[in-house]
């Protein structure tokens, strides 16, 4: 039984291992931080969010300040998929972001059917906005008469 945890990670309940959802690579114990099985690269944010203004004219150019902010890119060691992009101040310890109770997870999935591809939920927030837009359009229309 495998449980999907993110777009790129799943937990194999039988082996209690983190696995890559793209290539099946085993990252390490599901009772531990999955990041320990990944490769990390310290990215200068100016390479991703490139300066749009002339850097000779301006200090602030829509790029993050590399002295304040770095991007830690986490890659699957086997297929090179980017699993996380973590924005941190230089030197800040990476976050232990997913720490699940594996025994509880096993119990929870005892009677559940395995999910291979996640279902897509309805985008209710967007629907509400669209409903409001329709409502507002009606009001605006009403004013004219």
């Amino acid at each position: 039984m495998k449980v999907l945890i993110t777009e790129y990670l799943r937990i194999n309940l039988d082996t209690e291992q983190w696995e890559c959802r793209r290539c099946g690579h085993v990252h390490g114990s599901a009772r531990d931080n999955y990041k320990r099985g990944l490769l990390v690269y310290d990215r200068d944010p100016r390479e991703i969010h490139k300066p749009l203004l002339d850097t000779r004219l301006y200090e602030r150019t829509y790029s993050p300040d590399p002295a304040w902010c770095r991007i830690l890119e986490y890659y699957c060691a086997s297929c090179g998929t980017m699993v996380e992009a973590e924005y941190l101040p230089p030197g800040h310890p990476p976050l232990y972001d997913i720490e699940l109770d594996i025994d509880a997870l096993k119990l929870q999935w005892k009677d559940r059917k395995e999910v291979v591809e996640p279902t897509v939920g309805p985008d209710l927030a967007l629907e509400k906005v669209k409903n409001n837009r329709a409502l507002h359009a009606d009001h605006a229309h009403g004013h004219k008469h």
Binding site: E73, A77, G80, G91
Partner: peptide
């Protein structure tokens, strides 16, 4: 993707160098 694998560092090693 291969370039990423080449330049990425194992987490433990990365943290040793990165964390202040």
């Amino acid at each position: 993707r291969r370039e990423r694998i080449r330049r990425g560092k194992p987490f433990e090693q990365f943290c040793k160098e990165w964390v202040t």
